[in-house]
Design a binder for these strands. Structure first.
Length: 550
RNA sequence: GCUCCCUUAGCUCAACGGAUAGAGCAGCGGCCUUCUAAGCCGUUGGUUGGAGGUUCGAGUCCUCCAGGGAGCGCCA
C-alpha cells in the first residue's frame, strides 16, 4: 500500500499545485466498505473550509486535474461527503507480490531509526518471588515494543532494572532463614508480612542441602539472601525464556550508589536550588515542574526514597546516549513516573525522550472467580503456571491482543478448554498449511522460485477476487508495523495478522494452488510464499513460533 | 477530596476525527473421494453507560453525571 500511497501522494500534490490549492496534510485510509475502493483520501473535506466550497466540488476538481497511470489505479470515484476513492489496478497488485518475496525476512522493516540506540526497560521486578501474571503482560508488551523499534530501524537494548538490597531483600533473606530453621525442626513463628510462598521453602531446602545445618547457630544471614536472589532470578529468567523474552542487560540499582550517581543528582539539585531540607528530610521541588507538591527524595533516616535512584538511573540512560527510552510499568506505578520525569527536567534533561507506557492490570479468572495476585500471599497463580496451562505462544498472543490501556481478563478455564479454537492456532495453522502446500509442491518437483528471477508478469495468472483481497491484505503489513511502532500500540499487530490468516484461509478454500495449470500453480505458490513471509515476519515481532506442521 | 485507565453484541474485546460500528467465543444452519475441517460459507445478535457541547462528520475530542479498576507515603 505504501507504494500506491506514495504514488498517489505525488500525483495529488501535483494536482493541488495545478489548481493553486494549498498544500495541506491529509490522510490515506483503507475504507471498510468494498464499494469505497482500496484507498481513500479526505483531502477535499479538509480543504472545504479554507476554500469555502462544497467538498464534493473540490474533489471533482482534484480528480479532473489528476492523470493517473491505469496500470496502478483502475478507477477513481467521489463519494459520500467528499471522499476521493481509488481502486487499485489488477496489474499493479500483481506487481507487488514479487516485491514482498524480494523483501523476504526484511519485508516490513523500515529505516526510521537509522541504527540509533533505543532502550526498552521492562519487567524490572525485584527478585523477591516468581513473576506474576501482571509481570507477564509487561514482559510481553515490552519485548514486543522492543521488536517493533528494531523493525523501525533502532538499535534496541532490552534492560531489566532491579534492586537486590534494602528492606524488601532483608525480609526475603530472613523468610528463607526461618524456613531453614523450620526444616531443622525448630518451632518458628513465621511473621505475616514475610514471604509466604512455597518457593521460600524450596530455597531453604537448597540452602540446607548446600550448607547443612551449620548456619543454624551462625550469625550469617547473607547466604540466605544471596541464595534466594540467585534462585529466584534463575526462575524468573526461565519463565521469561519460555515466553521468548530475553534481556540484553541487567542494571543493578546498587551501582548507582557505588558510582556516585545518586550523590551527583542530589548535588546538582541542591546547586540549582531545587532541593531543600525540611523535617530532617531532603525534598525535591517537584511543584516547580508542574506537579502537585514537593517530594521527599532522602528520608530523615538518610535513606533515599525510590524516586532518587529512579531519577539517577534515567540520567545514566541519557548518558548512555539512548535516543528513545521506553519504560513499561503496571498501572500501580502510575503516580510515580511524573516525579521521575520532573526530576529529569530539573536535572537538565529532555524528558520527552522518555516514553512511559502504562499497562492496566490483568485479572486472572478461574471461571467466574477472580484470582488475586500478590507475591506476598501464598495464594496466587504465577506466570509460570499460566504458561504451563496455556503455552508460551498462547500466553504471549493473549497478552498482546488487547490494547495495554484496557484491563485484561484472562480466563484460565477458557485458555484450557478452548485452546484449540483460539486465535493463535488460527494464525499458526495458516502458516502450517502454507508449509504443507510448499512441501507438496516440492515433492511434485514444482520449484518455487526464490528471490531471484521474479517478474511481475509471472503473477498475471492471479485473477480471483480472493487472490486480490489477499494481496491487498499483505500489502498493509509495512504500514501496520510502522503504525504499531510509532504509536506504541503492539496490539494492532495480532489483529492484523488474524486478518491475513482469514484472507489466506478464504483463498485456500476457493483456489487450488497445485493444479495442471503450470503458470497458475507457480503464481499461486509465489503468493503462498508471500503470505508465509508476512505471517512469519509478523510472528517474529509478536514473538510466537511459526510452525511448519500442526 | 484529587489524579490516571476503563464502560461498545450474551461473554472477551477491535475500530489514524471519516462513509452502513467490526472480530473471536457462545447460539443456529450448511460444506471434507482433490494441496491440513485447528478451515470455509450463511445466520442471529447494538439507543457505543447517560446528558450536553465542538464540526462538514464523534464510539473517538471537550464539559458534567453514573458505574468499575488503579493510585494519591519520609513503601517500591
Amino acid at each position: 500500500m505504501l507504494q500506491f500511497e506514495a504514488y498517489l501522494d505525488q500525483q495529488l500534490k501535483t494536482a493541488l499545485k495545478a489548481l493553486n490549492y494549498p498544500d495541506i496534510e491529509y490522510q490515506f485510509d483503507r475504507p471498510k466498505a468494498e464499494a469505497h475502493g482500496d484507498i481513500s483520501v479526505n483531502l477535499a473535506m479538509l480543504l472545504a473550509k479554507s476554500l469555502k466550497q462544497n467538498p464534493r466540488q473540490i474533489a471533482q476538481q482534484i480528480v479532473n486535474a489528476l492523470s493517473l497511470d491505469s496500470r496502478q489505479i483502475a478507477k477513481v470515484e467521489i463519494a459520500g461527503p467528499g471522499f476521493i476513492n481509488f481502486f487499485l489496478a489488477e496489474a499493479g497488485l500483481q506487481a507487488r507480490v514479487p516485491e514482498i518475496l524480494q523483501g523476504g525476512e526484511n519485508y516490513g522493516r523500515f529505516t526510521l531509526g537509522e541504527s540509533r540506540p533505543a532502550m526498552v526497560e521492562f519487567v524490572s521486578a525485584n527478585p523477591t518471588g516468581p513473576l506474576t501474571v501482571g509481570h507477564g503482560r509487561g514482559a510481553v508488551v515490552g519485548d514486543t515494543v522492543a521488536n517493533l523499534l528494531e523493525w523501525s530501524g533502532y538499535k534496541v537494548t532490552r534492560e531489566y532494572y532491579f534492586n537486590d538490597a534494602g528492606r524488601q531483600m532483608r525480609v526475603l533473606g530472613d523468610s528463607v532463614r526461618l524456613r531453614y530453621l523450620e526444616l531443622l525442626g525448630e518451632k518458628i513463628d513465621f511473621p505475616e508480612d514475610y514471604y509466604q510462598g512455597e518457593y521460600i521453602k524450596d530455597i531453604a531446602a537448597k540452602v540446607l542441602q548446600a550448607h547443612g545445618s551449620v548456619l543454624k547457630e551462625s550469625a550469617e544471614t547473607d547466604i540466605f539472601k544471596e541464595t534466594a536472589v540467585r534462585e529466584i532470578f534463575a526462575d524468573i529468567n526461565r519463565t521469561l525464556e519460555s515466553m521468548n523474552v530475553r534481556f540484553d542487560s541487567y542494571f543493578n540499582e546498587m551501582d548507582l550508589y557505588r558510582n556516585g550517581d545518586i550523590d551527583r543528582v542530589i548535588e546538582n539539585l541542591k546547586k540549582k536550588n531545587l532541593a531543600y531540607e525540611q523535617d530532617g528530610a531532603l525534598w525535591f521541588k517537584a511543584s516547580q515542574f508542574g506537579l502537585e507538591k514537593d517530594r521527599v527524595i532522602v528520608k530523615s533516616s538518610g535513606e533515599p526514597t525510590y524516586r532518587l535512584p529512579d531519577i539517577a538511573y534515567h540520567i545514566v540512560k541519557f548518558q548512555r546516549q539512548f535516543e528513545i527510552m521506553v519504560d513499561i510499568f503496571g498501572a500501580d506505578h502510575i503516580a510515580t513516573y511524573p516525579d521521575v520525569l520532573a526530576g529529569l527536567r530539573a536535572s537538565g534533561y529532555d524528558s520527552s525522550k522518555v516514553k512511559v507506557l502504562i499497562h492496566q492490570f490483568v485479572t486472572l479468572m478461574e471461571g467466574t472467580e477472580k484470582v488475586k495476585m500478590s507475591t506476598r500471599k501464598a495464594n496466587f497463580v504465577t506466570l509460570d503456571e499460566l504458561i504451563a496451562e496455556a503455552g508460551g505462544d498462547v500466553t504471549r498472543w493473549f497478552f498482546l491482543m488487547r490494547s495495554m490501556q484496557s484491563h485484561l481478563n484472562f480466563d484460565l478455564k477458557l485458555a484450557k478448554t478452548h485452546s484449540e479454537e483460539n486465535p493463535v492456532y488460527y494464525n499458526q495453522y495458516a502458516h502450517a498449511r502454507i508449509c504443507s502446500i510448499l512441501r507438496n509442491a516440492e515433492e511434485k518437483g514444482i520449484r518455487c522460485e526464490g528471490k531471484t528471477g521474479l517478474s511481475a508478469s509471472q503473477f498475471a495468472p492471479l485473477r480471483e477476487k480472493s487472490e486480490f483481497e489477499l494481496i491487498k491484505k499483505l500489502l498493509e503489513f509495512p504500514k501496520t508495523v510502522y503504525k504499531c511502532a510509532l504509536d506504541y500500540e503492539p496490539h494492532l499487530l495480532p489483529l492484523y495478522l488474524s486478518e491475513v490468516s482469514t484472507a489466506f484461509h478464504k483463498f485456500y478454500t476457493e483456489c487450488r494452488v497445485i493444479s495442471e495449470d503450470e503458470a497458475l500453480t507457480r503464481a499461486r505458490l509465489g503468493l503462498c510464499l508471500a503470505v508465509k513471509t508476512v505471517l512469519g515476519n509478523g510472528f517474529r515481532i509478536v514473538g510466537v513460533s511459526a510452525p511448519e506442521r500442526m
